[in-house]
Amino acid sequence: MVATLSVITLVSSALLGGVFALTKGPIEVAMTAKTNSAIASVSPKFDNDPSSQIIAVEYSGKSYKVYPAKLGDKIVGYAIESYASGFSGRISIMVGFSIEGTINSISVLSHSETPGLGDKIETSKSDFNVQFQGKNPQEFRMVVKKDGGDVDAITASTITSRAYCEAVTTAWEVFKLCVVQKEKQGGE
């Protein structure tokens, strides 16, 4: 009895180990491809490989991933991975900034908002995303209109919209830290 069960579990785990070893590479490739396509869709034109040059930036106790987009040797922008708590779980976004600080574009990486309501943050579902494009957060107040800002919230999804704005604001703060770091390095 014990022997049979042991043999079955042993064979199963050996099989799983084999499959894990075989799929490990492709899984990593698939994940990098996803990050790369998100970076490419938000950043200004670049010719380097941003996902191999990740900078980790600390902001209010949390670490954020920043992908520098370079054309030649010059940094032309940053893609910043940011997140906030939405209506039902974490909303992860990738915000692309040009080096002057304007938002190039934003792509939603993952979320679990209500289908048909909160999921309008996806570019394919509504134009909510588009209103951030080409805006500079210095003059564009990234708070929903209800709270005195400039952002048109998604109807019936104010909590989602607020969380989204929070994530973009975080990305903006991280961006400012990046610029400060870069100027320090440039001065040395």
């Binding site: 069960l5 079955i8 579990t9 199963s12």
Partner: peptide, 29 residues
């Protein structure tokens, strides 16, 4: 043996599900 029937089935099923999960993660993300 009859007594460990259900645990054995579950181990077999769980293994195939995990294999499927890894394959899907790799090729149909």
């Amino acid at each position: 043996p009859n007594k460990v029937r259900i645990p054995s089935y579950i181990v077999v099923i769980a293994s195939f599900v995990t294999i499927l999960q890894l394959i899907m993660q790799a090729y149909t993300p």
